[in-house]
Computed example of a mutant assay.
Amino acid sequence: MADSPTARRRRLAIELKKLREGSQLTCNQVGEALSWSGSKVNRLETGSGRVQPSDIDALCRYYGTSDELRELLMALAKDSKLRGWWQAHGTGVPRWFAGYVGFEQAASSLRQYQCEFIPGLMQSPEYTAELHLASNQMSAADFERAVKVRTERQSLLTKASAPDAWFIVHESVLRHVIGDRKLMRDQLERMLVVSELGNVTLQVLPFTAGTYPATGAFTILGFPEQEDPDLVYRDGLTDATYLETPHDVGQYTKAFDNLRALASSPSQSTALIRRVMEEHSQ
């Protein structure tokens, strides 16, 4: 079972939709049979509404599920109401980003392309602080919380069940000076240290790579159980987009594979990062 409340909520929504579609019923038909609105059924199937175990019990009895499945789904409903560790930091984690952190904690694989900034899981506290200062959208207290959350997230890569993480960064990310050159030199050194982890692969897409899919930054998250399909995440300044249809995920998977083929090998990427570090030392 997925090990974050966010992922459990998604699993529950997927299973509820599967049950309804298997019964060849619409949301309105199910809602009418249970004296609910069709929109309530839809909210439960999209994970956007409050989930009560009693609602899940009613749905399962209506669909005629086994006792075992009903108990499993009710347990998911209860667990989905728990708070993740990141939620203890309050507004230091924007609401639109909290969902991503929950999915990240449950992922078994991460494939990420960054064309503007160092991947969050590789950032030094100083680099992260500079990015948050530039946004100028947080109070002093939330600023400290945000930096702390970013640092705590990074333990994901070294835990016992760490995901297989593959990062591709554009060369411009290495040369974009955030803070000052010393900060950037230290940041690139941190990248190299993280890239030495057995579950981490790092490639750089060099300026000489030629044309490539103009996708912008994105992350593809994979999950340990087959019932939880891959998810594509893209973020903006104040919001986030999740894509999970087979077509959309397939398109981004193809884009990532193309970027991987065009990028320098891990060893060549390490050499390039060291050259840029020397430039930042001058």
Rank of each mutant, 00 (worst) to 15 (best):
A2F: 11
P5D: 01
P5Q: 04
T6H: 07
T6D: 02
A7H: 05
R9Q: 03
R9P: 10
R10P: 14
R10H: 13
A13K: 14
E15A: 11
E15Y: 09
L16Y: 13
L25F: 05
C27Q: 13
L34N: 05
W36A: 01
R43P: 01
R43K: 09
E45L: 01
G47D: 03
R50H: 08
S54G: 06
S54I: 13
D55M: 03
R61G: 07
G64M: 06
T65F: 12
D79A: 08
T91N: 08
E104S: 07
Q105H: 11
S108I: 11
L110R: 02
L110F: 13
E116R: 15
M122E: 04
E130Y: 06
H132K: 09
Q137L: 10
R145Q: 09
V147L: 06
L156M: 11
S161W: 01
P163D: 08
F167I: 03
R181H: 12
Q187N: 07
V194C: 03
E196S: 15
N199L: 07
Q203L: 11
A209S: 15
T219R: 02
T219M: 15
Q226H: 08
E227G: 09
D228G: 02
P229Y: 01
Y242M: 06
H247M: 10
D248E: 14
G250K: 08
Q251T: 09
Q251Y: 07
Q251C: 13
Y252H: 15
A255C: 13
A263K: 00
Q268H: 01
S269D: 04
T270Y: 00
I273K: 01
H280G: 03
H280A: 07
S281P: 06
